[in-house]
Design a protein around this nucleic acid. Structure first.
Length: 425
DNA sequence: TCTGGGGTCCTAGGACCC
DNA sequence: TCTGGGGTCCTAGGACCC
């Protein structure tokens, strides 16, 4: 189990906010929040915004008054920008460590086993400084023998300015004190639900969690919880994964900018999500074998309605027209004329490699016909060059009054020709 | 007026098989 | 009187992550 490895967990500080500030430097010193899709809730906030008492997950309409009263800056989420910045940060990290596991858009685990202990902190600071210099993005870095402990170290690296963004917990004499200071619900793997279960048991910090009996943990928190506890004890249960595991599902869903009460509109929306999901499949050379469409009304209104319908494909596919045919048929099944739809989405499962399709005995095949593949390739190429969605299927609609709100979106500074930064006019 | 989206893994329970 | 046991596969729901 234990590999004797030294693991560093890197994450970008307030990543979405930092991405915005790189291209608009005045934002570094102003309170800034980035909103979720549909400008619904706060999903990222910088230190100055935290100082105003704003919390992650808070509804935007509850904090919007701060725009006027406290100079709060607001941006709609701009995933084209964040995704591209993330790719650049990860590429840089890969030049600084032989093993990099990209964990999320703003986090990675690195292997630092080869760095002598004495110079480890210095090297970690070099990593932070390099990314800061190349991308303008500030990082913090926690080092330990397991992923869970590295996450804990990073918690403090962020917390205490005197650490300068780096904490090495490996063999630290103060490991106990740090774990004692770490609230149990801030332990990686302990969410709100288990946090409450533990609190009820009087377990309020990571040290107490670490010292619980295996039996109790296994019974109440399952094998997942037990892994977390073992990791806190320094036993590595979650290895560094160098190759990303194959994806098992693709989901595209959105809340609507306003309630949808027309079947044609709901179909346009689901067609748009389907086309987007199909593009994603093709980009990763996957095909889907099953398709679920789900719809719901607002969670916050009376007569909450939620439903889903699914179907299996005879043969897996990533051809947009085929997927559209199925998803639109499912919308017909789910349609209710008395419901104000607030959100819809599509989930693709049973994914397989597009090059190793299992054909069906009862299907009709003309394997020599490569026109569908060529058509999709041409559309994808064009959309990649110009802009996603510029070339689309008629089913996706023209007016699209249901579209998600994004009132405060910044430019796609790095991925869109029309929106590149202008240095001099 | 307004309340996110995209993932993973585990578990329990039912259907089905021999 | 007495009604098995072990296994797999699938799905839905619940927990977690960012």
């Amino acid at each position: 189990m234990s590999t004797g490895r030294v693991i560093a967990q890197v994450d970008c500080n307030a990543f979405y906010c930092s991405c915005e500030a790189v291209f608009e430097p005045r934002l570094w010193t102003m309170p800034l929040v980035v909103l979720s899709n549909n400008d619904g809730v706060v999903i990222a906030l910088n230190t100055a915004a935290k100082a105003l008492g704003i919390k992650r997950g808070e509804s935007f309409f509850k904090v919007s008054r701060l725009i006027k009263t406290a100079g709060l800056q607001v941006r709609s989420s701009n995933y084209a920008l964040y995704g591209d910045m993330s790719a650049r940060v990860m590429a840089t990290l890969k030049t600084l460590s032989p093993t990099v596991e990209i964990y999320s858009i703003d986090e990675a685990f690195l292997c630092l086993s080869a760095i002598p202990e004495a110079s480890r902190t210095e090297y970690a600071r070099h990593i932070c400084a390099t990314v800061r210099q190349f991308m303008g993005i500030p990082l913090s870095l926690g080092i330990a023998k397991t992923k869970t402990l590295a996450k804990a170290a990073n918690y403090f690296a962020k917390q205490y300015p005197q650490l300068d963004g780096v904490l090495d917990l490996t063999g630290s004499a103060q490991q106990q004190e740090f774990l004692q200071a770490l609230p149990v619900s801030s332990v990686w793997g302990i969410g709100p639900r288990w946090g409450q279960v533990l609190a009820d048991e009087g377990v309020d910090n990571a040290l107490k969690l670490r010292d619980l009996s295996d039996f109790w943990v296994r019974k109440r928190l399952g094998v997942v919880g037990l892994r977390t506890v073992l990791e806190l004890r320094g036993m590595s249960c979650l290895p560094l994964e160098q190759c990303p595991r194959p994806r098992k599902s693709v989901c595209v869903s959105r809340s609507f900018g306003r309630p949808v009460q027309q079947l044609t509109e709901l179909k346009e929306a689901v067609a748009t999500f389907t086309a987007k999901a199909a593009t994603k499949l093709r980009r990763e050379h996957l095909a889907t074998g099953a398709l679920t469409v789900f719809v719901r009304s607002s969670k916050f209104k009376e007569n909450f309605f939620s439903a889903s319908a699914n179907c299996r494909l005879l043969t897996a596919s990533n051809y947009t027209p085929t997927l559209l045919k199925h998803s639109l048929a499912l919308v017909d099944k789910l349609w209710r004329k008395d419901v104000k739809f607030a959100k819809a989405g599509i989930l693709l499962t049973r994914l397989t490699d597009e090059n190793t399709l299992q054909l069906n005995l009862f299907g009709k095949w003309d394997l020599s016909d490569d026109r569908p593949t060529k058509l999709m390739r041409a559309i994808d190429k064009s959309n990649l060059f110009y802009q996603q969605g510029r070339l689309r299927f008629a089913a996706e609609g023209m007016q699209r009054g249901w579209q998600t709100r994004a009132q405060y979106r910044s430019n796609r500074w790095t991925t869109c020709w029309e929106e590149l930064p202008v240095v001099r006019v």
